[in-house]
């Protein structure tokens, strides 16, 4: 089924929209959830919650790219679930590792206003990503958006793991510099 048709089902409040979403994007969203949660039942719940989230968001939204839209919902739900699990001493997976890596960019002693609007920060990261070469950008997003493991990224792009790590390291350095210039971080 075409994305436009699926969106049409959501708009017409047809419950077939959820089945169609599951058929077409279930595996995609499940992979994102698994990367974050490392637990099949938790991932399954996240995906189910994704369709519910989409049901609530459409309308009024009309996503331009349905896969990214669903993926973003799954990602957020899974991160939330991971955060809750962590407080209950559960969890793990790629999200922890990704956070570790991102802590290079966000030092504990950051003196800038903590409450930067997430949307504003997302805009800055978006702008930054558009300055990167295509492959670096894709690798960065696979790691920090999809939360793929290093070995999966290396396999996907045909690189060695060390090359992948070094590419991500360079990207984080560039992002740090970009955020500093934008005043999001100052040390």
């Amino acid at each position: 089924m075409e994305d436009e048709q699926i969106i049409g089902l959501y708009w017409s409040r047809n419950e077939g929209a959820i089945r169609a979403s599951e058929d077409k994007y279930g595996a995609y969203c499940r992979a994102i959830a698994m990367n974050i949660l490392s637990s099949i039942p938790d991932a399954e719940e996240s995906v189910n919650d994704t369709w519910l989230g989409a049901w609530n968001a459409i309308p009024p939204q009309r996503p331009a790219i349905l896969s990214a839209f669903f993926g973003a919902i799954t990602r957020r739900i899974s991160l939330n679930r991971r955060r809750d699990a962590r407080t209950q001493k559960r969890g793990g997976g790629q999200a922890e590792l990704a956070l570790d890596e991102l802590s290079e960019i966000v030092p504990a002693s950051s003196s800038v206003e903590e409450a930067i609007e997430e949307k504003e920060l997302a805009g800055a990261v978006d702008a930054f990503l558009r300055t990167l070469p295509e492959t670096e950008r894709r690798v960065f997003l696979r790691r920090y958006w999809y939360l793929d493991s290093i070995s999966d990224i290396a396999r996907r792009f045909g690189f060695s793991e060390s090359k992948t790590k070094s590419m991500l390291h360079r990207c984080r350095g560039k992002l740090l510099s970009h955020l500093r210039k934008g005043g999001y971080i100052s040390i």
Binding site: A72, R75, R76, L79, A95, A98, L99, L102, I105, V106, I116, E118, K119, L121, A122, G123, A124, V125, D126, L129, L141, Y144, W145
Partner: peptide, 9 residues
């Protein structure tokens, strides 16, 4: 926050 923000690109 940064990880969440990346989700908003």
């Amino acid at each position: 926050q940064l990880l969440y923000a990346i989700g908003g690109v």
